[in-house]
Design a binder for these strands. Structure first.
Lengths: 182, 182
DNA sequence: TATTAATTTCTGTTTTAACTGAAACAACTG
DNA sequence: CAGTTGTTTCAGTTAAAACAGAAATTAATA
């Protein structure tokens, strides 16, 4: 055990929030515990040591350890230290925009960009030449689509959150501005 | 068995494309076979009967049956019939934009919107009042964020693919237009 | 440097989802 | 309506991921 007293009591709303976030994660290919740990840190809004997370969520210590590592790999949490406490404490940004941008950036790098590479490879392969031209065209279109989306994503990620917000709020009114652009 | 001859031979490029698409699906919470079946239909660009899909992918017939059903639930494939052939044939749009919009629309309805509901419930719950105001504020910000994204998504989905394409191509130049907007 | 605290790694178990093959069902054909 | 073709459902199996608990490692303290 540990010299500190652990286990934070979560009220029902916090539980609902954290559990739902975990399920949401599962549906998007994120480990449930990982999502729960992050939701917890976001909810409490202050740094927590691993043991406290463990007891609060009621999962194994090692599970928390791995989840924290995973979240660090995703740049979603940071380690901080509390004066007079040897333990690592973990915290996450309370700015949803920052979190969102981080996730989009990471997923793009890990999953989107590699897919673009594969499609490029496919098009360059001599095996495709023998194939009918239409299939080649479809791969080309899929690639073009992903490239447009990728470039756009990069540019959006560079915007200030407040600017990005304005863009989103603009919504489909952007259509009207389109004629002005050139 | 079946009175027709099945099994389409896939060249290495097609295989690479389909297998990668399957792995990609897994990482985003989509069943691998489901993703593969869809990739195959996209690649071949013409209607295929279930048996031919089965033999081409080398998976169980029932697996294909369930995958096709799933893809129909997602509105990603359609059933068509070929003159003189009793079997159902399945086909998917060759327009990546249409496919993308379909997926975004469905996922939004299934996973995004329900989460918004949960967050609203959380905020309305009397249990949260007792909680510190900052946690409440964070939930509120998460909700606000998701609502903005949701509204924006709905509006983007309504745009013509060609218009949407222009918006994406505009990229961060949109920043300059922002001052003109009101 | 011995002791304790804190964290990670490892191995085995559990859980969940995917998948198969067979049986049931439905639709069509002669 | 008997036989055939095509599709779906279902029960059981397999495979993959998540998770737990113990052991090992690292780091801090005294």
């Amino acid at each position: 055990m540990n010299m500190y007293n652990s286990a934070m009591i979560l009220n029902p709303v916090a539980q609902r929030f954290i559990l739902h976030w975990g399920e949401m994660g599962s549906k998007w290919g994120v480990n449930r515990t990982v999502a729960q740990v992050h939701a917890l840190l976001y909810f409490v809004g202050k740094p927590m040591p691993a043991d406290e997370i463990t007891e609060t969520l009621g999962v194994a210590r090692s599970n928390v350890s791995n989840s924290l590592k995973e979240l660090q790999n995703w740049n979603l949490i940071q380690v901080v230290h509390i004066m007079g406490d040897r333990r690592d404490h973990f915290t996450t940004s309370s700015d949803v925009w920052v979190l969102f941008k981080t996730v989009v950036h990471e997923r793009k790098e890990r999953e989107f960009d590699p897919t673009i590479s594969v499609l490029r490879d496919c098009l360059e392969s001599p095996d495709l030449d023998k194939e009918d031209a239409e299939a080649q065209q479809r791969i080309k279109e899929a690639l073009g689509f992903m490239e447009v989306l990728s470039t756009w994503g990069d540019q959006m990620l560079k915007l200030e959150p407040s600017t990005l917000m304005k863009v989103l709020k603009l919504g489909s009114k952007i259509k009207d501005l389109l004629s002005l652009a050139k």
